[in-house]
Each structure stands twice: as C-alpha cells, then as structure tokens.
Design a protein around this nucleic acid. Sequence first.
DNA 1: ACGATGACGCACA
DNA 2: GTGTGCGCCATCG
Length: 120
Amino acid sequence: MPRKKAAAPTIEGAAKAIHAAIRAIPKGTIASYGDIAARVGLPKHARLVARVLSQLSDPAIPWHRVVRAGDRIAFAAGSEGFARQRERLRAEGHTVRDNGQVIAVRRAADLDQELWGGFF
DNA sequence: ACGATGACGCACA
DNA sequence: GTGTGCGCCATCG
C-alpha cells in the first residue's frame, strides 16, 4: 500500500497527546516545552506545545508545571499569567524569583535519572 | 505564495 | 547575567 506522506502536526492532531503528557507531570515537578514535545514524539515542536497551552480549555490540566528552557516562566514578568503561574508553582514547593527563574524542587527531565542513577 | 507572529530553544557577544 | 540573532514550525492575514 502507498505510504502516507508525513503530515505536518496540527493542534487538533497533537493536542490529545500533549494534554496527556502534561497531565502526566507529577505534582511538585516541572517540565519544559521542549520536554513535552519530545515526549509526544515531536522534537523541535516546542512552539506547538506553546500554542496548545495558549488555546487550552481544560482547567484540569496542570499547565503551570510547564516552563521554558532554563526553568523560566514563559510569561513576561509582571503579566497576569506570570503572577498566576508563580503562585501555583510556589504552592507546589518551588521557589520563583521576580525575574521568573524557577528553583525547582524536581524536574521531569531529571526524574528518570533520579529513579535509576542512585542505584547503578 | 509571502511575510508576520508566537506561553520556544540555542549559540554567541 | 543580559541582550541579540537565528533556527524552528504551525497559523493567520
């Protein structure tokens, strides 16, 4: 059978997987946009993840656990989104500086190593 | 088709 | 540590 050409990922097509990946971030843990994209098999699509979040409708999704590379809040310091995310992150035990830098208790990117690294 | 726009990421000065 | 530039890629006018 003729192989289907690789279609460009769309919000519609990727939203479900991205939602699931974000819901899977444990409480007290943060992950970057790039982490989420890679997790759903779409490396280099961090911006797609951002787009999904910007149009997020389901309030049950812990969007606040998703930060920019370098553990920085994506919103501009001083914006509403910034304030809300900072509140939520602090509520989960993280420290957030005024400039948006997050001193994370735990990062999803390091979770695997935490689970295995100490034993081998 | 083309250029502008993002809740992005990385290299470099 | 901060600012700037460029790559990336789906969307939109």
